[in-house]
Amino acid sequence: MSTTTTPPNPFLNGLWRQNPTFVQILGMCPTLAITNSVRNAIAMGLATAFVLVISNGLIAAIRKHVPKQVRIATYIAIIATAVTVTDYLVKAISIPVYKALGPFIPLIVANCLVLERAEAFAAKKPVIPSMMDGAGMGLGFAFGLTCLGTVREVLGAGTFLSVPLFGPNFEPWVLFLLPPGGFISLAIWLLVFASFRERKQRKLQAGLTEIQPAEVRS
C-alpha cells in the first residue's frame, strides 16, 4: 500500500482504483475456489463485503484504545466475531448457498483482504469512512469474483446464473469448473486489465509529449 495521494472517496477507491482482486491481488483463496458459478461468486462477495463493513467499523471505533503490541490479535478476534455472525446469517438466509460455499465462509477470517483493510485503513481513520472503505473494497471484491465466475460458468457449464445459454448441443468445457480453470481465467483477466492500463499509460505519455513542445514555445 503506497498511495501517495489520498483519493477523495474511499468507496470508489476500493471499487475500482485499488480493486482487491485485479489491482492488489488479495484474498486469492475464495477468488479461485468459489467462483465456479456466478451465484456462488456473488454470495461469497457479498458475505465478504458484509464482514468488511462490520469489522472495519468496529476496529475504527476502538482504534484509540488498542495497544500497538496486541492490535493484530484484537483485529483477528473482531474479524472472527463478524465472520461467525455472517456464517449464521447465510445459514438462515439460504441453505443451498450455505452448502455450496461450505468451509469458505469461516475461512473469510483468514482472508488477507480483511486484515489488510483493518491495518491499512480502519486503524487510522474514523468510523464512517472506514465503513465506506469496507463497503467499497467488499463490492470491488464481489465485482472481481463475479467477473471470474462469469467466465468460468459460461465456458465450464454453458450457463449464466443457471440459465442455459447455448442450446443442447453445447459441450461444456469442464476444465473451467476445476481449479486449473480458475487459475487460468484469473490470469486472463489480469492480462486484460494490464493491457488496458498499459494503453492508458501510453496515451498519457503521448499526450505529455504533445504538450511539452507547446510549453517550450511559450
Partner: peptide, 9 residues
C-alpha cells in the same frame, strides 16, 4: 482445493 493462495503466489 485452492487454499493458502496468498503465500503460494
Amino acid at each position: 482445493v485452492c487454499l493458502g493462495m496468498c503465500s503460494f503466489l
